[in-house]
Nucleic acid binder design. Structure first.
Lengths: 192, 192
DNA sequence: TCCGATTTTGATTGTACACTCTAATTTGAG
DNA sequence: CTCAAATTAGAGTGTACAATCAAAATCGGA
């Protein structure tokens, strides 16, 4: 299936249109028609290049996440701080796309089994990367302890992001950084 | 608008049907037709009693949340533990309804301004109740400190709930209780 | 220039959904 | 029993959407 240049450019235009619409107006407003209108393409051309609307949406979301990856090559050199900052960057710069991610995770999960697994796997990979980075900066931690701590940290970050999605005034970055510091330098219980 | 008994019973049947469908199959599967079929009511009767489908859904969700309220009369006697346990009960027993709450918060928030404010207000009231309970059990805490701590605690609980929604095996209750203990008895930073 | 492969078009299909409207029926207070 | 008000029925409206298809146009290697 040797591609023609025209088709490749059209594909790029469609992706760009989807990226812009999703990032600006959210999932519900990004209809197939809206994408095609902005890309100046007719519906038929869209389906000549993509299997479905879902394909495009998932690709845009995946690319937005990948764009802030502090270690795209997976060299294992990232610090916990890098990962947290990447997380903050994603939710700060791409808040609507981030919301779409949650939207897909929450609404699609019950119905669409394949999608559910993709998101589940994605989250587990994230736990793993965060845990590894935490242990790198803190070799004394056991795997169990580090995993536990990572689960809590990520839960808090997700919760804070959700909070920020509800209230734009909420200082997501500050809370996120404070939480991350807490997770990095282990606290001890005050004797009671 | 003096009600007839028949209408009151029909209203109850519709609410019950919506409750069952939402709790079992989620928001997307709970169509107007599905509600009417289960309630054995025709569409026209539905709209004689309710303004919209949204009305019914929001009422079911609100009632599910109210059902686990440890202090429905707002006497101010609830402990932080009570509140956390209520939260755990809601997400454990009514996991699908809880998911619907998130679904509404995330997808509706951008479009529907009125709904957005309701959910925002609900969250702020929750922060307030949690903070008050925390201070009651820990009078030494300043309002600022308690608020901060509460924001983090609630964010973590929400994040853990989200995690549990993705992976049914995740031990939500254990993590939630552990986090709450942490929040209750302030930890101090280990000197570095 | 030729010609098969790719791309484009846009009318059309199909579907799912919330919601409306009017006429018929039922209720229950007086 | 009467009758106005409440309730019910259910066909019908309107809309928004993703996706299909066959024919026309275009591409680009040989």
């Amino acid at each position: 299936m040797a591609r023609y240049q025209v088709g490749i450019r059209t594909e790029a235009r469609i992706l760009e249109a989807a990226r812009e619409l999703l990032g600006e107006f959210g999932l519900d407003a990004t209809t197939l028609k809206a994408i095609c209108d902005r890309a100046e393409v007719r519906v038929g051309s869209f389906y000549n290049l993509f299997d479905s609307k879902e394909t495009v949406v998932l690709r845009v979301v995946a690319e937005a996440i990948a764009a802030v990856d502090p270690d795209p090559a997976h060299l294992g050199t990232e610090t916990l701080n890098d990962l947290v900052e990447a997380y903050i960057a994603f939710f700060t710069n791409e808040s609507i796309v981030a919301r779409i991610y949650v939207q897909i995770a929450v609404s699609g999960a019950l119905n669409n089994g394949e999608l559910h697994h993709r998101i589940e796997r994605h989250h587990e990979q994230r736990v793993d990367r965060f845990r590894a980075a935490l242990q790198r900066g803190n070799p004394a931690l056991s795997v169990e302890n580090a995993t536990e701590r990572t689960e809590i940290l990520l839960a808090t970050l997700n919760g804070l992001a959700f909070r920020a999605a509800l209230n734009a005034d909420f200082d997501f970055a500050r809370h996120a950084r404070a939480t991350a510091i807490e997770a990095r330098s282990p606290a001890v219980r005050r004797p009671t």
